[in-house]
Design a protein around this nucleic acid. Structure first.
Length: 872
DNA sequence: AGATTCACG
DNA sequence: ACGTACGTGAATCTA
């Protein structure tokens, strides 16, 4: 063997695969690009992984091949190549050239034959060969030194066919693949085979006899009268089919392996093609880092250390050293206005002029991220008032799926390119560093100037979409409230957590020992891979579910294995406790600041539904469902000795929102009469009276209600309830019969999504659904479920946000000391002195229930206690 | 960096 | 026929 490795690619097949695997993408000129894109991704990956020394992409030449002389209908009945794909072939050829890769096609022969011929030559010269195609026919070429990769669903996902893999998959040798095709045919190539013989039968016959010829030689001993009859009737057709499926390994090609040396990419050519096709991500890749950066236009700013006067209207950007504004250093502040751009380094910010300007709400400020600026400034004792525009929130409202939090990306959505990305300025990962003050000043100035320039256009978009109120009256004021909540923080008792941690550690050690004992060896329990080997290989437990990478060991799988082996219960308990230990004990302790509190950041411009998210730490997923975990909440305490934590949560807000939006009479009635909604659903689904609903029926009904909210599917419900799909389908059908308004509403929402390309919430929040008309069933179905879920989840989010704003006003009006600390999607957590608890118990439900007027009542439950655990 | 698992609503 | 429930974040392992 040599070190040479030959890579042979089936150009046509891969282009087809890419075309159908990827959503239709077009570039700025309306040219379709998905096949080229998929092809590029696959090529990149395979070259990086295989490091071939020689490469060839083979193409089919024309319509006619030598196979048509044998069988005129070869590949007959095939759909014509869609024009959207045809137009991409020239680009694929150009791309291959730019990559420095040889390509070849030969009249009357298919790409398969070119590949087969070269593979054979390589075999003789003892080269390693890798063949990549979307067509399984090629697997007949597999040998010990020739491997065939077949694309799976994605473009970069590949099945690796070795002799062993073929043997495992079919129980056949690679050469027998041809015989298999001869017997079973191939619908896609219109190879007939023997009618009535499929893969199973073909494999059975070949296992017994070896080849097609041998099958006919021993035709008398073939079992099954029907089968024998079919085989005899189609003998000639079987031979012909085998011949058609056989790859020609002696095609009269005019190139040799020596012509295929991989030259390496021509950066400039490739760049030109990417540019033409609009492949922005690929353009940004490092290989081009030296090929000239898109020049940012120059910007004029002055670094001011002695601030005299500041404008009445300006764009302001507070530049931070890292993205956690609760811990990050403030580097400085850029102010862009009619009077030009000033950059004030942090040392100069704490002056009377600056302070007065920041707290003057008559001095109008347009910012990039109000909450971040407010929180960061608060830490150096500076206020921030008079904010009239927030770039982050405005772009999020325009389109929640696009916005990240880097100003460069945000403004790029409006075709503004004169801001450098934070990664470019600071570097990423280990290379991250603060550049010179001048570079920071320039970067911050560009951001401020971008906001100054774009505000009008973005506000115009908000007005166009009738979303200005949502932005200005809801999100913008909310940012200020969230900022105060974050800055206030919530006290977490480190001692309590540590005590829990000590106890957990001991228990975990014992469980660990029990697991090793049951397994008969030590291994890393935290490694799903190692655990899989123990459970399914060593202990031989039945495999219930597989993941991309191997056996699934998820909790629902382990649950089903509970009776099979004592180790399962130990593992489940270990997982549960290890999760508490690492995430909620150790993780949370790390997040406690010097003030004894955790200061989460509520990401306000992240989710596609309008919900908030919470990070560093995430306080929206503190355990509650299991008692062991729930105890973590004992560590969350008020910030003053005699204070209490107060919790208020909406009851069934999503189903109430659904009732309001679909106006189904039965559903509206159920809420108006104050019935338990799951019991009511059970009555309808099971056709029983209220007193006949047992716990199990109610549980099922509850799952059905969840399903409705998530965008119902029988399969999903069946999984959740561990029942047959048919049974789940029946529940759904009966539900929708009982609540026909729901069915009608879901139909309308999906139809709207298909027509408009987006769905909306009660307060006109939008989510675009580009996949809603996708040809792929799975992708389209996902978009449809999203269409059904988003207005419900999103409207509930709208409502609680409105309630938070109203609550803020009310707390001040009542002159209370109590403050809001957390929001957990449908609940609000406050803290306050004991004597205010009764007042809160009165006013919080009132405000939350009146946040919006629905055709069903909103219901809020409240509680309070000396810790979050006790507020239940 | 991506996959897996599991915590919440 | 297709094969997933909706929305999140953190820890850990593996490549």
């Amino acid at each position: 063997m040599t070190n040479e490795k030959l890579l042979l690619l089936d150009g046509n097949s891969l282009a087809y695969r890419a075309f159908f695997a990827l959503p239709p993408l077009t570039n700025q000129h309306g040219i379709h690009t998905n096949a080229v894109y998929g092809f590029t991704m696959m090529l990149d990956k395979i070259i990086a992984e295989e490091q071939p020394t020689k490469i060839l992409v083979a193409f089919d030449a024309g319509k006619k091949t030598f196979r048509h002389t044998t069988f005129t209908d070869y590949k007959g009945g095939r759909q014509k190549t869609p024009p959207e794909l045809s137009e991409q072939f020239p680009y694929i050829r150009k791309l291959i050239d730019a990559y420095g890769i040889a390509r070849y096609e030969l009249d009357m022969y298919e790409a398969d034959d070119i590949i087969g011929t070269l593979a054979k030559e390589a075999e003789e010269k003892q080269l390693n060969v890798v063949i990549v195609s979307g067509d399984k026919d090629l697997t007949q070429l597999v040998t010990n030194s020739t491997t065939v990769y077949i694309t799976r669903k994605g473009m970069t996902d590949l099945d690796v066919y070795t002799p062993a893999f073929v043997a495992e998959k079919y129980g056949l040798t690679p050469a027998q693949i041809i015989d298999m095709k001869g017997l079973m045919g191939d619908a896609s190539d219109n190879i007939p085979g023997v009618p009535g013989v499929g893969e199973k039968t073909a494999i059975k016959l070949l296992t017994a006899y070896g080849t097609v010829e041998a099958v006919y030689e021993n035709i008398d001993s073939v079992s099954g009268a029907k089968l024998k009859e079919k085989l005899i009737a189609n003998e000639q057709q079987a031979y012909m089919s085998k011949q058609l499926a056989t790859i020609h390994t002696a095609a009269p090609i005019t190139i040799t392996i020596d012509d295929l040396a991989y030259a390496g990419v021509n950066g400039e050519e490739l760049r030109a093609i990417y540019q033409e096709l609009g492949f922005k991500k690929l353009l940004d890749k490092t290989e081009f880092a030296d090929v000239e950066e898109e020049p940012k236009s120059d910007i004029q700013y002055s670094v001011v250390t002695d601030v005299n006067a500041l404008p009445f209207e300006a764009a302001v950007h507070v530049e931070l050293a890292s993205d956690n504004y609760h811990t990050s250093d403030v580097l400085g502040m850029a102010i862009a206005s009619n009077e030009g751009i000033q950059y004030i380094p942090v040392e100069a910010m704490n002056s009377d002029v600056v302070r007065q300007w920041l707290e003057d709400d008559m001095a109008i400020k347009y910012v990039t991220d109000r909450k971040a600026a407010q929180a960061a400034l608060a830490r150096i004792d500076l206020p921030l008032e008079g904010v009239a525009f927030d770039l982050l929130l405005a772009t999020y409202i325009v389109n929640p799926s696009l916005s990240g939090d880097d100003v460069a990306t945000l403004v790029a959505e409006f075709d503004y390119r004169d801001v450098e990305s934070n990664d470019d300025v600071y570097g990423k990962g280990a290379k991250r560093a603060i550049p010179s003050q001048d570079d920071v000043a320039k970067h911050a100035s560009r951001k401020a100037f971008a906001v100054w320039t774009l505000r009008d256009a973005i506000e115009a978009r908000l007005h166009e979409n009738a979303q200005y109120d949502l932005y200005y009256d809801l999100e913008l004021p909310l940012a200020r409230i969230l900022g105060h909540m974050e800055t206030a923080g919530i006290t977490v008792s480190k001692d309590t957590l540590q005590a829990m941690g000590d106890e957990l550690r001991e228990r975990l050690q014992k469980i660990e020992a029990a697991i090793y004992d049951a397994a008969g060896e030590q291994f890393n329990i935290n490694s799903p891979k190692q655990l899989g080997v123990i459970l399914f290989d060593k202990l031989g437990l039945p495999v219930i579910k597989k993941t991309k990478t191997g056996y699934s060991t998820a909790a629902d799988v382990l649950d089903k294995l509970k009776g099979e082996h004592a180790i399962i219960e130990h593992i489940l308990l270990y997982r549960q406790l290890a999760k508490l230990q690492s995430t909620y004990i150790e993780g949370l302790i790390k997040e406690i600041h010097d003030d004894g509190k955790v200061h989460t950041r509520f990401q306000q411009a992240l989710t596609s539904t309008g919900r908030l998210s919470s990070v560093e730490p995430n306080l929206q997923n503190i355990p509650i469902r299991l008692e062991e975990g729930r105890k973590i909440r004992q560590a969350f305490v008020p910030s003053h000795p005699d204070w209490y934590l107060f919790a208020a949560d909406y009851s069934q807000i999503e189903l109430r929102v659904l009732a309001h939006m679909c106006q189904d009479p039965a559903l509206v009635e159920a809420f108006n009469t104050g019935m338990d909604i799951h019991t009511r659903t059970a009555m309808d689904v099971f056709h029983v009276g209220a007193d006949e609903v047992d716990a199990n029926m109610r549980r099922t009904a509850k799952a059905v209600n969840f399903g409705i909210v998530y965008g119902i599917s029988d399969y999903g419900l069946s999984q959740n309830l561990s029942i047959p799909r048919q049974e789940a389908a029946e529940f759904i059908e009966r539900y929708l019969k009982s609540f026909p308004g729901v069915q009608q509403y879901m139909d309308i929402v999906v139809k709207q999504a298909k027509v408009n390309g987006y769905v909306t919430t009660m307060l006109n929040r939008r989510r675009y659904l580009p996949d809603i008309n996708n040809k792929n069933f799975n992708i389209r179905s996902f978009a449809e479920r999203t269409a059904m879920n988003m207005p419900i989840q999103g409207s509930a989010a709208d409502i609680i946000k409105k309630a938070m704003i109203d609550m803020d006003v009310r707390l001040r009006a009542e002159g209370l000391q109590s403050t809001l600390l957390l929001q957990v999607h449908d609940e609000l957590i406050f803290e306050g002195p004991k004597e205010e608890m009764d007042v809160l118990a009165r006013i919080v439900p009132e405000v939350m229930e009146q946040a919006v007027k629905l055709s069903v009542p909103l219901k809020v439950d409240v509680s309070y206690g000396k810790s979050w655990y006790d507020a239940k």
